[in-house]
Design a protein around this nucleic acid. Structure first.
Lengths: 259, 259
DNA sequence: GTACGCTGTATTACAATACAATACAAGATG
DNA sequence: CATCTTGTATTGTATTGTAATACAGCGTAC
């Protein structure tokens, strides 16, 4: 990580752009609307800076402004960026037909995730039962240690990498049942390594059973995961392992990106 | 529209940020990777400017860089922005459960679109049959006059607005069957107004029949549309009108945003 | 083999641009 | 009605981004 001091002296780093991106990034699941004063608090910018950058993003069409409250919100331009990304994402392109098939076969919610740092991010989501919408939107990041997708991706890495991740990567308590015991997480990952898939229950959403299988490139490096999310009212882990896991594993194995 | 001259004198407009966003926006369905020289061509920036802005976005994690080819591509951060937007989009939150139901009822591809200027943009996509992935990704923009969703949104506007749109808004020939005759487009819109839904065939993708219905706010303003996409090998417009249209209309009417 | 064109990278001195500090207006709050 | 907090607008100043340039690596052509 490069510190702010090093960056200030780096003539190839345009700090004005960073400040603008700070504003763009301020919006999150907690806060979807900001007045100017709020932006100052969240971004740490000066009042006049926040004013200029927010105004610029507004003129460029990235932010909308409620004329009454004068608060800013992300515009639909945020979505256009997702489109640009998806076109460039070789894995998503490759996986999509298989995900559609899997969705039809199982009639359950199917997701595809990719690793990013210590998190995973959902790239494709195909909901099949009503659930919290926000939780099932594209682009969501979840700590890899918590999500079944993250764990199953880890399970294909070296012992050393797994141990490092389990002991140092962040976790977060999403539900009452979210496992905060790192030993238990390690066990779950090692189990996933043996079985070829990872099962979890209630880690991110309270009433869900999850089954995840890794997508590996031709040289065996895990580059993503497919995961199936089942309502725990009707599914036990055991039944999921029997009926769903083989399908998820098969779909994941049929996707072999060359890079 | 504010011209560049006016902007240069506007002290509230940070042109450095605009240049950075130009780089971010350079990536599209046609071009998913850019070297520095390509960026210069596409964005119109000076070489050194392109260098600094691309480098900044790289350090901030928005762009990835292929170490061999030294070309830039959008990173998964593009997707995170979609997440921020979807959390803030009241209509998407509201519609999601109904879209899931509709997807299960019909077993067909269901989309939700919102108007943006003279285009519509796909906000929710639930594919149910194999298709060109890129064409079915979130965030895609299509001219409103071409897409069934766009036409059905227009059909709920005033005569004057419809006539203005049909005569001045842009169209684009996506397939051989895409209607470029504006008179025919007007007829289709007026038909949609009568029926309450809009049907089209092969406008955006060659082998597709589409049925779209408008989502209107409590005061009758069209704010979006649901559309169902059917493979034309197995569906005629007539059969779609009989079996699918009532379901789509019902779903759309059950969504009544208060703002 | 070397000369050339094309990349991407790195370093300058300079001035244009973003800056902080203001002052003002308009609601909200007490 | 007084006061606080919000968003808006202006200005002189220097910080910051700038264009120009030089360099290195690579492939192509002669």
């Amino acid at each position: 990580m490069v510190g702010p001091k090093a960056r200030q002296q780096d003539t190839l780093f345009v700090s004005s752009l960073e400040k603008g991106m700070r504003i763009l990034e301020a919006f999150s699941e907690d806060k979807t609307e900001f007045g100017l004063a709020d932006l100052v608090k969240v971004t740490g910018l000066e009042k006049s800076a926040a004013q200029r950058y927010a105004n610029t993003l507004y003129e460029l069409g990235y932010l909308e402004k409620n004329p009454e409250t004068r608060r800013f919100r992300p515009s639909v331009k945020y979505l256009e960026m997702a489109y640009s990304y998806l076109w460039a994402d070789y894995l998503a392109q490759l996986a999509m037909p298989r995900l559609i098939d899997l969705s039809r076969q199982t009639s359950q919610t199917i997701n595809m995730a990719e690793p990013i740092g210590t998190d995973i991010i959902y790239v494709v989501r195909m909901p099949n039962h009503r659930t919290n919408f926000g939780a099932s939107a594209i682009g969501r990041r979840v700590p890899a240690l918590v999500a079944s997708s993250g764990r199953v991706i880890l399970s294909r890495q070296s012992d050393q990498a797994i141990r490092d991740a389990v002991s140092t990567w962040p976790t977060r308590q999403y539900t009452q049942r979210t496992t905060m015991d790192r030993g238990a997480i390690l066990d779950n990952i090692l189990m996933a390594r043996e079985k070829g898939y990872c099962t979890t229950q209630g880690q991110v959403l309270p009433d869900e059973v999850n089954v995840a299988a890794p997508i590996c490139s031709i040289d065996g490096i895990p580059v993503g995961a497919i995961h199936c999310s089942l309502p725990s009212i009707r599914w036990t882990i055991e039944r999921a392992e029997e009926e769903i896991a083989p399908l998820v594993v098969e779909a994941a194995q049929s996707i072999v990106p060359s890079r």
